[in-house]
């Protein structure tokens, strides 16, 4: 945990919706209902620039749905939010990403039938060859392609994936895919990365290095917001923790203090949610992958508003 960010946030009140000294993302009155159920109902949320903020809460708290809304992958029933002062409500996902807010997914979306390197190149921005007519004339895009490749190699090196660069992404382990997805998100030098359960399905040996990478991002000046539902995972790396339960923001605070907040205890225990059961971070890679494969095979709901877990994914037909 970086001392300076922590100190910047030291004076912030520990109320849900607390104002931050330098917020990069400010959301107001964001609601999303599915039928009769209110999945998200967040009054006010600010995310501090340059800090690691963890969004935690029990299963079904609405964390992923909020993520989907903020990144344009789902449409809210109401609400508005700004990113670096720019209105992003109603902006399509691709534009959100181009604005500098890049996300990853809970069920990894490594493009498995493309190589690791192609995955990385796809993450880059400003490749003129991605336009149909320019694509026909290689000299127009080859130079940029070389820059992109160099950058990809550098990132892969950092994420210890360089020797896999010509393998199909599908052949990577679950944890490596998480790493690849994160590295790919960094190809466009985002100002803010949104990581949806980066630790889910990652074996413990890789967890440490993942946490290290997240901290490295923050130290490099990138804002990080990540979803997690296990408190213990986030304690060591986050500068600030926001807690959601039943769609609402119930508490905020530094990682050390927030667990003691009665609202948080209530959220995890009072709502009869078992923090761990059904938690896919506890599933072995194989099981998680099988579930993922099943979810794919069902292939019903497109992953707009990514479900909270594979089980719900299957249920949505």
């Amino acid at each position: 945990m970086s001392a300076e960010t922590t100190s910047t946030l030291a004076g912030v009140s520990q109320e849900p919706g607390a104002a931050k000294p330098d917020p990069i993302l400010v959301a107001d009155d964001v609601t999303r209902r599915f039928g009769g159920m209110t999945a998200v109902d967040v009054g006010h949320l600010e995310v501090q620039r340059g800090a690691i903020t963890a969004l935690i809460g029990p299963n079904g708290a609405g964390k992923t749905t909020l993520f989907n809304l903020l990144t344009g992958f789902d449409q809210p029933n109401s609400g508005r939010w700004t990113f670096e002062g720019r209105q992003l409500a109603g902006v399509p996902a691709a534009k959100v990403s181009r604005a500098g807010m890049v996300r990853t997914f809970q069920l990894t979306k490594a493009l498995s039938r493309m190589t690791v390197m192609e995955n990385m190149r796809l993450g880059a921005s400003d490749q003129p060859g991605e336009r149909l007519l320019q694509a026909l004339v290689p000299p127009l895009w080859k130079p940029r392609e070389r820059e992109i490749t160099a950058k990809a190699e550098e990132l892969l090196e950092r994420f210890k994936l360089l020797e896999k660069k010509d393998d199909f992404a599908g052949s990577l382990s679950g944890g490596q895919r998480k790493l690849l997805e994160m590295a790919r998100a960094l190809m466009s030098d985002p100002t803010m990365v949104m990581l949806d359960e980066p630790m889910a399905g990652v074996n413990p040996a890789l967890t440490q290095s993942l946490l290290g990478h997240i901290q490295g991002l923050r130290d490099g000046g990138t804002t990080v917001l990540f979803v997690e539902h296990d408190m213990h995972m986030v304690r060591h790396i986050s500068d600030w923790v926001a807690v959601m339960a039943e769609g609402r923001l119930v508490a905020e605070g530094p990682p050390g203090g927030v667990m003691a907040n009665p609202a948080v205890v209530d959220a995890y225990l009072g709502a009869h949610h078992d923090t761990d059961l059904g938690d896919d971070s506890l599933l072995s890679d194989e099981v998680a992958e099988q579930l993922e494969a099943e979810a794919e095979a069902e292939a019903e709901a497109r992953s707009h508003g990514q479900a909270e877990g594979p089980q719900t994914d299957e249920g949505d037909r």
């Binding site: 399509p92 691709a94 979306k109 498995s112 039938r113 493309m114």
Partner: peptide
């Protein structure tokens, strides 16, 4: 090709 694999992933990378 990316869209064929998973269009949401491609969308998240800023492609229309």
């Amino acid at each position: 090709k990316g869209i064929r694999e998973d269009e949401d992933a491609v969308r998240s990378l800023g492609k229309n």
